[in-house]
Amino acid sequence: MELDLFIRYGPALLSGFGVTILCWLVGSIGGLVLGFLLACLYRFGPKALGWLIYIYVEIIRGTPFMIQLFILYYGGPYVGLVLSPMQAGILSFIIYGSPYFSEIFRSGFNAIPKGQIEAARCVGLSERRILMRIILPQMLVPTTAPLTNFFIILTKETAILSVVTVPELLYETQTMAAETFTFVEPFLVLSLFYWVLVIGTSWVGERVEARVTRHLRRV
């Protein structure tokens, strides 16, 4: 293994890692928020809207991310939506993740006993307050683990952004591999970076979980 390779390509790899983290964080948190809104509208909104959301979820969830990205990036200009690779990447990431997040939250709704919501209505709490204060905190008990799962899955999906030339980690790694005719080193580094991201995400997930389940512990 040649160490000077890393000295030469280190800055590019690190910048690629930075771009990956940026796209991943903005995209997945955006998807999380959009997914939460979709799940709430599905649950509490009018029935017709529920059907629209259902169709949206099935279509976006059922088709590959790469195709969605292509449609947005190459098809967007036909309807006047000209996006930079990075903008298209992040936007399609938000759209791609939202149905999965929405379904995870929907499973959370199923876990709250009806009586608690009745009790909240009886003391006059508003529906919004009930959602944010009674339902959401408890919804996080069964959903933190699947949410962590999906954040982890999304770390790896960022690699697909390289196909529209977003200068993220895989893109930089491929550049390095092509220019230096090496294969093992660049992809070892790539795996290491993803591994760091996955370990970090699991760690955060476990902290969040400990926080949201603390009321379940018996003393």
């Binding site: 009586g115 009790a119 009886c122 003391v123 009674i134 408890q138 379940l216």
Partner: peptide, 15 residues
Amino acid sequence: RQHIGMVFQQFNLWP
């Protein structure tokens, strides 16, 4: 409902 308090069989406290 603010004027009507209610107590349930299953308590329904927020855990």
